[in-house]
Design a protein around this nucleic acid. Structure first.
Lengths: 194, 194
DNA sequence: CTGATTATTTAACATTTGTAAAAGGTTTGG
DNA sequence: CCAAACCTTTTACAAATGTTAAATAATCAG
């Protein structure tokens, strides 16, 4: 069994979700590799099919895409979050979205095809990633409710309440597009609640 | 094996997603039951934990909830769609959302706990529902993109393009809240594109 | 068939958000 | 440390959407 102490943070998080048999964990460890990306660099560019499941070991990343020439941020991943372009990974279609390191970031990458192949052998791996997908799905359903039926101000207040350090680590222009508003609009909101 | 020809439409749809061994299919069939709901009636009320996976055999249903006293429609399910309150089913928390028959509707119900228990025995059942969850997740991710970064008019045009008969079968007030706008606003959009 | 109920549209006005441009701030690399 | 690049705020105006109320239109139950 490969000794990779650098991925302990990943194993800790995963074992909380669904415990793995030793052989399954070992098979998973064999698939993992570390990738370091400098602040502002893309881990994965637009136009490529997503074939890797990433985990943020350290740092901060986002998924973004271009809408009429403007960057739109779809998702932020903090330490110990999983980051994946689901609409590409689960369909095999090229993604129009990119993954970028917002700070200097270290990712743990798991090649999806090789992982999926293990599902036939290690049932608990399939179960683990099934549960991860379910959790991500729930988050996304809840996000729709937030986006659609709260005002921009409510969404901003909720964001800084649930994730206070986000505002210190992420440029406001990214937060604005994540909230579905312009940067000007976000500035106005910030001014009005001061 | 129970003979339940009434659920063939479900089995057809599922076998397209992931084929099942005979015993697995048989175990699934044993779990299924038919539920008929009259137009306008709730299949599942607000406040109850979602413990059943439903399939629309015939008719049309929606998920809705109340926001400041107003009904908000979150999802429509047509014939052969699966309908589930994921944020409740996958967390065990009571749902603040209800499932309602928009027309007289016949559902096929699968009790979730009993299904999940079969996953340990029939691996392919877990795989099937893993894939279903992945597909639903992808749909939801794409829906966020639609909601957040298209105008209400673009969303309406997309909706009637992708689902032309929706407009004939669903009251506009439900479509309006599904699009995240007021009924007045939808009326304006409809007037402007005429 | 008909009155009652429900659904949809229209109007007038208020509020929110967007756009474009400019002015301050802050960060960063040399 | 400084200049360039980038980020954030502000301003003025435009466009989109919300709110309330009333007028039509369509549907439903008896």
């Amino acid at each position: 069994m490969a000794d990779k102490p650098q991925i302990n943070s990943l194993l800790d998080v995963l074992s909380q979700i669904n415990p793995l048999a030793e052989e399954s964990e070992s098979a998973l460890i064999d698939l993992c590799s570390l990738i370091s990306v400098k602040k502002g660099q893309d881990l994965q560019p637009v136009g490529v099919t997503c074939r890797t499941i990433y985990f943020v070991k350290q740092g901060l990343a986002r998924i973004y895409y271009y809408k009429a020439g403007n960057e739109v941020t779809e998702y932020f991943a903090f330490e110990h979050d999983i980051i994946v372009r689901a609409e590409s990974l689960f369909t095999g279609m090229p993604s129009n979205k990119a993954i970028q390191a917002v700070e200097d970031t270290v990712f743990i990458g798991i090649p999806a095809e090789r992982l999926f192949a293990q599902y036939d052998i290690y049932h608990d791996l399939e179960r683990l990633f099934r549960k991860i997908t379910e959790m991500a799905y729930v988050d996304t359903v809840n996000r729709i409710e937030t986006i659609q039926f709260h005002t921009a101000e409510e969404r901003y207040l909720q964001l800084i309440r649930e994730n206070p350090d986000l505002i210190k680590r992420i440029p406001l222009k990214h937060i604005a597009s994540y909230l579905g508003i312009t940067q000007v609009s976000l500035s106005r909101i910030r001014a009005s609640i001061r």
